[in-house]
Design a protein around this nucleic acid. Structure first.
Lengths: 233, 233
DNA sequence: TTAAATTATTGTCCAAATTACAATAATTAA
DNA sequence: TTAATTATTGTAATTTGGACAATAATTTAA
């Protein structure tokens, strides 16, 4: 124990926040939802939406609250990324921030600026301005985490609709990894993932409609339990 | 923004801690270094060593301090795993804890119980008792993170000596993943990792000594920069 | 000094996965 | 009915991965 051990209560002088990185894809690009700060510090700079966590609030709950306040979206799974805590990262005090992310389909909802900020916008990762705080760093680390999790956990099904076509599935990976895959080969690659094929087909498309699939959670978790399986993309 | 937005300063009522999971291998098993708590809460229960973070202390710095106090070891890279923050996880107040881990060679050092606790011990993951707080959960999540990072980042070189034999390299993965690999095949698998082969050989072994290698950081990071490379095991 | 024992290192063969690309099937729109 | 479009399946070549054998280098014991 350190020399300068102090009273337990003296430690209760920090705040913690969540920062929510919402990734979305459109026009062949991955974008993040940013807000323009309407107040000090970093007034008028773009920033990742975040908020302090209430004292009795769970971390994920806080992340989902921020998402809801910004987008009106509910029931979107948020994934924890990393925690950032350099002593001086927040000019007003010691604030340690836990980053969460989600992957969304931009066209699925309307952003509501709400009380947050003057402006809310999807910004391409390719074209990122200087952000408030250490948010550039948080954003790029979290993008790496997104890719890592897409490769090792079935989080793709959090963002895909309940029933999806194999092409939609493929496009998600194409957008996230910014590269095209061969259709036939992609289908071979996902053969090990338990999917349920439905009789239903895509509607309202002006070409041959694709078959709809859904993720077979039960079979998946059975495979995981029995250690006979690991998700790999 | 939530209805019950309160003053900024009211949020500074929480504490942060780091929990340091030290994984080590010996006798063909992965073990974690645990302490027996000498005080309330959870007195006499085994726990992951951790400590509150000082107000002006960086997270990694705190993790390295805990490691040092417990083992006397310096300059071991600690890796961030996940952050745990259920409101009631600590009976004395809201404490959010950030878990860090390191992988060590048990025979490389002596544990010093120091002021920490009555007892310090390496405990096999196979044979884990009920731990204090939510430490069983933290431990198993962090073990998963260790394996994930071993597969996707070159953290193995943090724990290997600067110059190592290919067998030592292989054994590290064998211990972590609890399975044996074929020597010849392992060598093929790591062909893409930039290693420097030295003329030097293993000393004091009673058999043909193996050649020593070291990790070529420069070549590695060049490959990463230029996007011509991803670490995969 | 030599042979046996031990471990390092390299090679080979076969099966499985990956890649590039082609062929066929189903549907819409004209 | 046909052209256009996209879905789906197939095939052949290449690369990777796993099982196992062969050879090389070194120590130890006879």
């Amino acid at each position: 124990m350190s020399m300068y051990r102090i009273d337990f209560n003296d430690f209760f002088t920090s705040a913690f926040s969540v920062d929510c990185i919402l990734f979305g894809y459109s026009d062949g690009e991955i974008k993040a939802l940013l807000i323009k700060r309407a107040m000090q510090p970093f007034e008028n700079l773009w920033a990742i939406p975040g908020d302090l966590i209430y004292p009795d609030e769970d971390l994920e709950q806080a992340a989902e609250r921020v998402l809801f306040e910004l987008t009106g979206l509910n029931n979107i799974a948020m994934h924890q990324s990393q925690t950032f805590g350099k002593p001086n990262r927040h000019p007003q005090g010691r604030v340690i921030t836990i980053s969460y992310f989600a992957l969304l389909r931009i066209e699925d909802f309307e952003v509501k600026a709400s009380s947050w900020a003057g402006d809310v916008q999807w910004v391409s990762l390719k074209n990122m301005p200087d952000l408030a705080f250490d948010h550039n760093h948080i954003l790029s680390s979290t993008y790496e985490m997104l890719k890592l999790k897409l490769q090792n956990e079935p989080i793709c099904f959090d963002v895909l609709p309940e029933r999806f076509t194999l092409n939609e599935f493929q496009q998600l990976y194409e957008f996230a990894f910014e590269q095209a895959f061969d259709k036939a080969n992609f289908r071979k690659k996902i053969k090990h993932i338990p999917l349920i094929a439905h009789d239903e087909k895509q509607q309202n498309v002006k070409h041959r409609p694709a078959k709809l699939f859904s993720f077979d959670k039960i079979a998946y978790f059975e495979g995981i339990e029995q250690n006979r399986y690991t998700f790999k993309m």
